[in-house]
Design a protein around this nucleic acid. Structure first.
Length: 269
DNA sequence: GTTGACACCTGGACGC
DNA sequence: TGCGTCCAGGTGTCAA
């Protein structure tokens, strides 16, 4: 599932492909993925040219002149840049026909992904970006993180998955960050110490930056967007593992906040 | 403001 | 082989 490194990889690849191209037409067989009236969505985008692609957390933000297309890939969303003659598969739910004879195609097996357009004025003042916390690999301070955790009774794992606190971390990388930090995922957020918070932020930045270098993580049946296979799965220490690489004891799998959670009872107190 | 439950959605794994 | 059930999980919404 795309988390910050995977979305950043998509952004970097698409930016070179799309820059300067104009959207000629948009087709969809699943208009519900657009969080606004589909006709209005099309009217705003057709005729506009790609100027830049930004990212905040797990959101892709396509800059098209005076309008911004915000896309969240959720679980299995992928973008493909293909010639329009290439056959469509049944999971491609949105096609942007481009001025150079290519398509920007959005594929989403589970139809969880969402898109919406915003003006520059709306971008940071309305959903979905207005409540988003800072990027987990950005300049987040220990003081900021502790201030967000001090009144919360939920497990630290749930807090780190909350994109309003810090953005970009998903289930895989939260498990890895907590393992590297030696923190039990069930530890109460309000019990996180200054040292814990410092470790969490340092390890989040280190892990996410390294995962970006390796173009993200590809596990289970999932493949990365754009056909790019990530390489960071080779560096996972705990997520989907059975043996702790540090102490050699069994990895425990539990559910925290409804999500499969892997940790080492010996190393993560 | 915080927390938990649930819906969205489909492919794959599993049991019968 | 075919069918039914469960699981996976990021985010939004709603109720308590």
């Amino acid at each position: 599932m795309p988390e910050l490194p995977e979305v950043e990889t998509v952004r970097r690849v698409l930016m070179t492909d799309l820059n300067g191209l104009t959207i000629l037409e948009i087709e969809s067989n699943y208009e519900a993925m657009v969080d606004e009236d589909f006709k209005g969505f099309k009217d705003k985008l057709i005729g506009k040219s790609f100027k830049d692609i930004h990212r905040r957390g797990k959101f892709l933000i396509f800059e098209l002149e005076d309008i911004f297309l915000i896309s969240h890939l959720r679980m299995e969303g992928k973008f493909f840049y293909q010639r329009k003659e290439e056959p469509l598969n049944k999971h491609i739910h949105m096609v942007f026909h481009l001025s150079n004879g290519y398509d920007l195609r959005y594929q989403d097996t589970r139809k969880f992904g969402r898109m919406v357009t915003k003006t520059k004025e709306q971008l940071n003042t309305t959903e979905p970006l207005n409540h988003l916390g800072p990027d987990a690999n950005g300049n987040v301070t220990v003081e900021y993180l502790l201030s967000k955790l001090k009144n919360r009774q939920i497990p630290i794992k749930e807090a780190l998955l909350n994109q309003e606190i810090i953005s970009g971390l998903g289930n895989i990388y939260v498990d890895e960050v907590l393992f590297t930090s030696g923190i039990n995922p069930m530890k109460k957020s309000s019990d996180i110490s200054i040292v814990d918070a410092k470790n969490i932020l340092q390890n989040a930045k280190m892990i996410l930056d390294k995962a970006i270098v390796y173009k993200g993580t590809t596990i289970r049946s999932y493949t990365s967007s754009l056909g790019v296979k990530g390489g960071y799965q080779d560096f996972l220490n705990v997520h989907t593992k059975t043996i702790c690489p540090v102490c050699g004891k069994n990895i425990t799998k539990i559910r925290v906040g409804g999500r499969g959670t892997y940790y080492c009872e010996n190393c993560q107190k």
